[in-house]
């Protein structure tokens, strides 16, 4: 199940674990990324918590935790090569895996059609 947030994160949900990244639209708006800071595995966030930071040549931006939960894995590949987020934002450019506090929270997120109409 693929879900989206208004803050331009995507979630691929499998059971109670969501793989999270930023959308192609967000990656394009940010431009060439040069730095990614990921959360520690085991850390817990509320919905909207500042889970990661990305930096382009020009500016820093936060990546929010899309739902409440615990970080169970992070993608160290994007720390070594932040450009993966630009070239493959929904694949190799994923950020972290989140064990959802309550999987039913995902129902309130946007589906792909709703997200696409948001970014118009």
């Amino acid at each position: 199940m693929l879900k989206f947030t208004e803050d331009h994160e995507w979630l691929k949900i499998d059971g109670d674990v969501a793989t999270v990244g930023i959308t192609a639209h967000a990656a394009e708006q940010l431009g060439d990324l040069v730095f990614v800071e990921l959360p520690d595995v085991g850390s817990r966030f509320e919905k909207g918590g500042e889970a990661s930071t990305v930096e382009s040549v020009k500016a820093a931006s936060d990546v929010y935790c899309p739902l409440a939960g615990e970080i169970v894995a992070v993608n160290e590949d994007i720390v070594g090569d932040p450009s993966l987020v630009n070239t493959d934002p929904t694949g190799a450019g994923w950020f972290f895996k989140l064990k959802l506090a309550d999987p039913s929270d995902a129902d309130a997120l946007l589906d792909e059609a709703a997200y696409n109409s948001l970014i118009g």
């Binding site: 431009g31 060439d32 040069v34 382009s56 040549v57 020009k58």
Partner: peptide
């Protein structure tokens, strides 16, 4: 213009 389709990195 802050950047063109080439992007800041490649433009630089």
């Amino acid at each position: 213009p802050v950047q063109y389709p080439l992007g800041v990195m490649k433009e630089h």
